[in-house]
């Protein structure tokens, strides 16, 4: 049901809400951007450096790069964790990690395969979705590395706040 803004108190309330949203979204933006992360090099010759997981990440595209012997076939799979119960992005962070694991499943998002040439290097750019993502890089020799990362998309958060608050408001100013 649409709520028309007709009274002057509603107008003021609307304006104050708008200002608050702008403040909140910029705060979220700042918070999201201050997260540091480093995606490891998938080195099938010397091994992969250990990193703290999940890696906090804030780009829609993830660059995967690595090193392997010439001729090695590398398969890159990305998975996204779909939470069964619908929750907002903000609330999800506050839940216990174990609770989340119990109520969702990993969905395969993207698969890419390449053969390493004389350069000894492979690279790919894969899209990821907001929330928890998993990247599995495996070689045809049976070796496999896996990292988990959490993509925080501040734009989506802002959109979500805006849509939750204003979707049912009919902006009619008199």
């Amino acid at each position: 049901m649409l709520i028309p803004i007709r009274s002057k108190y509603m107008k003021i309330l609307f304006i104050i809400s708008l200002v608050m949203i702008i403040l909140m979204s910029s705060a979220i933006s700042v918070h999201a951007r201050r997260l540091d992360s480093s995606i490891p090099v998938f080195d099938f010759i010397d091994g992969v450096a250990e990193v703290e997981q999940p890696i906090i990440y804030n780009n829609r595209e993830l660059s995967i790069k690595g090193k392997a012997l010439e001729g090695t076939v590398i398969t890159i799979n990305t998975y996204w964790y779909q939470v069964n119960k619908v929750k907002t992005i903000i609330l999800k962070d506050k839940l216990n990690q174990n609770d989340i694991s119990d109520t969702g499943e990993w969905i395969l998002q993207h698969t890419e395969e390449c053969q390493v040439g004389l350069s000894g290097i492979f690279g790919a750019s894969v899209p990821i979705k907001p929330g928890r993502n998993k990247v599995v890089v495996e070689s045809d020799t049976g070796e496999s590395y896996e990292i988990e990362l959490e993509y925080i998309d501040n734009r989506k958060i802002t959109e979500k706040i805006f849509s939750d608050m204003f979707d049912r408001v009919d902006l009619i100013f008199e």
Binding site: V41, D43, E61, S63, K65, G66, K67, S119, G120, I121, G123, S125
Partner: peptide, 11 residues
Amino acid sequence: PYSYIFLSEVD
């Protein structure tokens, strides 16, 4: 934009 990589980060 297109994603790029520094190859020196790998080798």
